[in-house]
Design a binder for these strands. Sequence first.
RNA 1: GCCGAAGUGGCGGAAUGGCAGACGCAGUGGUCUCAAAAACCACCGAGGGCGACCUCGUACCGGUUCGACUCCGGUCUUCGGCACCA
Length: 974
Amino acid sequence: MSDIKYDFNAIEKKWQERWREADLFRVENTTDKPKFYGLDFFPYPSGAGLSVGHCRNYIPTDVVCRYKRMNGFNVLHPMGWDAFGLPAENEAINKKSHPKKTVPEYINTYKRQMNLIGIGYDWSREVNSSSPEYYKWTQWIFELLYKRGLAYRSPAPANWCPHCATVLANEEVKDGKCWRCDSFIEKKNLPQWFFKITEYADRLISDLDTIDWPESIKLMQKNWIGRSEGAEVYFDTEIGERLTVYTTRPDTLWGATFMVIAPEHPLADKLVVEENRHALDEYRKLAQRQTAIERQSTEKEKTGIFTGSYAINPVNGMRIPIWVADYVMMGYGTGAIMAVPAHDDRDFDFAIKFGIPVIPVIGRSDEMSKATFRKGALSDDCEDMLIDEGIEFVEEANDVYNVTLKSAKETDAFIAIAKKLIQPGGHVSVVGARWTFIFEDAVIDMDSYAAERSVIERMRVIDKRFSGTETVARALASNPFLTDMLCHCEKGNMINSADFTGTPGELAKKIVIKWLDDTGRGKGTVNFKLRDWLISRQRYWGAPIPVIHCPHCGEVLVPEEDLPVLLPDVENYQPSASGESPLVNIPEFVNVKCPKCGADAKRETDTMGGFACSSWYFLRYASPDRDDVPFDKELAKYWLPVDLYVGGAEHAVMHLLYARFWTKVLYDEGLIDFVEPFRKLMNQGMVLAYTPHRTMAGSEGNEDADLIPLLPEQMADYDPDKIVWKYTKMSKSKKNVVTPDSMAEKFGADSLRLYELFVAPFEEAIQWSEEGMSGAFRFAGRVWRLVTSWVDKFDPYWRAKSAEEAGETNKAKNLRRKLHETIKKVGEDIDKFAFNTAVAALMELVNEMYSFVNTLDDAPSAVMSECVESLVLMMAPITPHMSVELWEMLGRQGFTIDEKFPVADESAMVKAEIEIIAQVNGKLRAKLTVPAGMSEADTKNAVLTNDKVKAAIEGKTVRKIIVVPNKLVNIVAN
RNA sequence: GCCGAAGUGGCGGAAUGGCAGACGCAGUGGUCUCAAAAACCACCGAGGGCGACCUCGUACCGGUUCGACUCCGGUCUUCGGCACCA
């Protein structure tokens, strides 16, 4: 074995310098090669520097990009900085510094670390969203949106973060808290700038079908956009004003027994009768004061105030009361609803609390039901009775009966029989289009939508005397109407609905909507949960909104030739609680002449949120130096869309939604020829650190108590037995961050890369372990020693001899087959992001190469030389430094990344003999080696004459033999 | 509550209808060494047997199949997202 030391520090430094000197990762725009655009979410530069968690994002992308390049692609792999916005500014505030100072500092650190772990970025294309050359074009796109009617200023109750002293977009509020600082959000009424993302809601949903993204992310976006189809219906009120409601269930209109409007509804004041006005005012004040904290409370009693007015239900003329309640929100639909307590949980709760009638209007459908019960649950007469009724039933294994009920009539008949014949302790369930009944002893009817418990809850609400199952039974037996009331079904036919009674459930919605349209009582409508994107921030560190407010002309866009509107240099940039940007205090900035009329005017002082800057940066990389356009049209056409986009799932409904929106706007403007910016998206798993926690004081022994992370310096203060260790996300505040620097120093960047790729599938969270890290290092060392020990024996002309040598001995042939199987697998695995199994395959190959070398006795081997060279090239995308060093030691010229990735030779993988699995009744009994391509009959014969197989079928009759050629034989015998 | 993902040795994981546990970590035994580290070799799911071997085993209950970690129905648990959206 060789004694050349694996001096990873020196090797990595050496090659990083050479790559830089050769400008190895600079990519040219014009080329005959196919392009590949691989991109990582650009990070906001933070003072903590990169952790090994960031590397989990950048390393796999780098592997794919290097692999693509070795396969002949022209690869664009750029990096830049999401430098504007809250995260960067908050960090500077905490450091009592200035983002102008901290941002470049942090960028340097990031860049140094990225180079340290060997990521091959084309730094000539670096972008920085806080540089005027960049944000000029962010402002330009703002103006484009404005001109297209997609940017507007409007007063609205906005999400205000008291700690960050700015408003936030809906997408930036998580669990009622600020996404940056976890403060609870308040509502504040301020004029704000919005982008009309709602206008693109439909396209943002439908185009999801055209892209290769994780289904979970697509679904999150779909749910966030929240499309629903329904109808607007017009209700006349006694005061002459018309109330429009939105409903997704127009088929339940006949069951509307009251109406509810939101506290902020403009008609509330007019509708309220004098004696209720005071109560309403009090209620609205209360609703206004309600904070996010209170909204969080899960157990929310319904509250509301009766206005004293009534409306007329346009479908049946019923006079129904109008209520004000905070469970209806002004921001969705029309801020008013018709309430159908029989078929909506919330309306039901409200109706029960305030004593409003419940009218069921959806009944059982004629769809099939299915009943199951065990033998003995019903008395034995049941079989005859069922046959008499013409009901088919099947006796299954284990004494279970399955009964198919083909109509409502059959279901009724079956239930009647079951009620009669139920045995003590017996159990029968009927699962239908509508509900499940479970009979036990007597009659207990259960609804398949509300589970048992919720039925009981409801019973108790209706009548305080009821409690427990037997009372449910009693109640339902005495009052069949309750059954209908308890079962608000989605499917089912219309009942109690005048001429529409009997309309089948699946048609009901459509038919009623058409009728509403035809008769002018309402109209079909689509609604979205998505709100417009609130983009203005009352903060310093962002792109100024390029608008001037003129007393005569109103809002005026800053002329294009005056862009960028430069962010002024100021010392004091801290936000204030006033709801105004710090920029208002800079007269030179604020006071301008109107570009239209020349009058004294005032500049807009709000800046754009950081997500505006990041909504188009992927386009800038195509032509980062152009100062006359945001991006070169032709180059954008060549490079985009992004072929592979890699980043964390936490941006599912923020950046990833906004960037899609802007892309569609740019497409509509004719600037680009694609509608989706990111063809394929991958989300890496997190890196978790084993972190000590303590339970909250006073809650020791309580298993559900919240655990609080323990800082290293606090460890000594706690009883070691009481410290709970668990894996949590790495964070600066927990002081559990592992840096790539420390790992690169101790084990080398290549081993860090190996470890992060190998330890778990790409999308899974990994538990950081230094032992696992040293395992990866061990493998790197094994490769190093294996290859360096072969340097002297390396045959550069193996191509002419390897296949021949493999024909001579079995072990050479087996090794060569393993090599080519590995080449195939590694390529396939990298393509499908299965890096963990790709590394495992390389480990297997290395293990076999060691075994082979150990039996060689110093003899030369072309096969081994082939393996060594191929191994070095296969590892080049994964461990680029070590690979190129070994490449050089083998006497090869140039960089591994310019070499062709090895190609699997199918002929080397042909097997002369294969292993057949012999099973008896599905259990493995023997493995036998047979010549490849053996006929079915011969294979069968070989298995049947095998001693172990013979022993296993001894005394049994062979019923059937299944043969899977070249794989397996299964003998069925009993 | 609703939507989604996942549950496999001591641990991370592999196998997507055909040998369960590839590969690695930890562990055990050995070689080398004055010694240690490193490296190398062997073992390493559970139970039984001196042994060749046998039985059980992929969260739980059932089903489909010659054959199920894998497909279907149901239950439980964990994690993530949404949460009065009519």
